[in-house]
Design a protein around this nucleic acid. Structure first.
Length: 152
DNA sequence: GCCAACGTTGGC
DNA sequence: GCCAACGTTGGC
């Protein structure tokens, strides 16, 4: 099992929204960045776990743990002219963008704010903390995963 | 709202 | 292929 971090703006889709979905599960659609796409398409597997991170909000923080609940498949919202992230360059015959289903597992006992994560030298290598990193899907190493869980 | 840091686009 | 312009992300 590999471990990841998924960003979402809670005003658009929060961990509360995920928990309320039928089966606590939601397609993680709308990823339109090639680096993140490559992770979704090639590396993220059913059964992997990920931190759910709230970004662009009063307190950016890791708020919970989710599970990858499906194999990857083409992102159908890319084919839909009415969808926010429609991409005419992506077709069912030759899809450009992918998604996986994500299932709520649990909330952390307390949110772990970005500001707090930054204070721990153990997390200096975490992609989330690298300057200028805007990826919405990022890897989390096993040691960092365990360390973050120890902070709850 | 500001601004730094990226990614993308398009002229050449 | 270069690079300026522009758009987006996201913390503060």
């Amino acid at each position: 099992m590999k471990t990841w971090l998924l960003k979402s703006e809670p005003s658009a889709f929060s961990i509360d929204d995920l928990e309320r979905r039928p089966g606590h599960t939601e397609p993680w659609d709308g990823v339109r960045n090639y680096q993140a796409r490559n992770l979704l398409r090639d590396q993220i597997k059913r059964g992997d776990q990920a931190f759910f991170y709230h970004s662009s909000c009063p307190q950016p923080a890791i708020v919970g743990v989710v599970e990858v609940a499906s194999d990857r498949r083409p992102d159908p919202t890319a084919f839909d002219p009415a969808a926010a992230h429609y991409d005419p360059g992506s077709t069912p015959d030759n899809p450009r963008w992918y998604l996986v289903d994500v299932r709520f597992l649990r909330r952390l006992r307390r949110p772990l704010p970005l500001a707090e994560l930054k204070t721990h030298p153990e997390l200096a290598g975490l992609p989330l903390l690298q300057k200028g990193n805007r990826l919405s899907v990022m890897p989390v190493g096993a040691a960092e995963w365990a360390f973050i869980l120890s902070l709850e």
